[in-house]
Amino acid sequence: MPRTDKMKNALDGIVNLMDGLLQWLDDRLEARRARTRREGLLAVLLLAPAMTLMGVFGFAPLLAGFYMSLFGGPLGENQFAGWGNYIRAFNDPEFWNSLKVTVYYVLGTIPASLVGSFLVAYGLHRILRGRGLLRTLYFLPYVTSAVAAAMVWRALFMTPDGVANLVLELLGLESQRWILEGKGILHLISGGWIPQDIGPSLALGCVMLFDIWHGSGFMIVVFLAGLTAIPRELEEAARIDGAGALRVVRHVVLPLLSPTILFLAVVSTIKAFQAFNSFYALTQQPDQPLFEPTTNVVLYIYGQLYRWNDYGYGAAISMLFMVAIILVTTLQWRFVGRRVHYS
């Protein structure tokens, strides 16, 4: 056989081999593509109900809200305002005041709730007798209607002769205006030395106290679930190594509980930013003006939309507030999330 024929045969063989390889690869890829298409279709079908609900009740209103925020005038549909409503918010002292009230509220309730709930949960975790009963008792406020509970608290804080004032009277102290008091707590405690607009008002303090009481039940139950998941051996090993109770909590319990703490911190911060029921039921009145010292951003948005008919401006504040909540939550994940131990 001539040399050229031999080469030709060898090349044909290689080509055939490559062809076969490519054919094999093509068949495999085709099968995979078909499977991906089937899986994709299945994914779309499975996601469709949730996506439809989220689309109709989540994304569409969000876009509609943004659209509304670009308009002003009566009922927010007549005049195109562009970014005017957003610029107005930055120059609106009442908006800034509502933001201040919201921040005071978040800072006043979340750390106190987390610390208090952890202490109660740890106590419940340690005791053996009556745990079930106490757990139920602590959880009861959470399952009570916030509005109904707020009505009871209103009666406690009633002026001039509510229970809170009767207690002050028994102690020989001056009665307070509680949920009607717009002056700062620090101003009242310092006897007027600190200006009255520094720090949260006494009325806001009452709302905070109510929400700490009302919301702690949920945190306690979640903390208890987290504590139950920590292996007992780790605590026992630490004790054998000579660690005291505080060291065990600090170096064993808290690190292992950090995913729970992060979860509760994030969820309760979002919830605190969006608080409405307690503010409204405890310190506001239907058919009465909004009480400025306890008007948080959500109430201010409510006022713009439903009391003062300023739809466009209310929608613009809602958008800004949503961005603020996303920002705070992201920061929490970034900075607190780094200190979380998942194993």
């Binding site: 994709g40 994914a43 779309v44 996506m51 439809t52 689309g55 109709v56 994304f59 569409a60 209103p61 876009l63 509609a64 659209y67 509304m68 549909e77």
Partner: peptide
């Protein structure tokens, strides 16, 4: 997939916005 979702959201939003016009 992404295109389908985007189209669905935009259609839904369009309908929603249209309601407010």
């Amino acid at each position: 997939m992404r295109k389908v979702l985007c189209a669905a959201i935009l259609c839904g939003s369009g309908m929603f916005l249209g309601c407010g016009a």
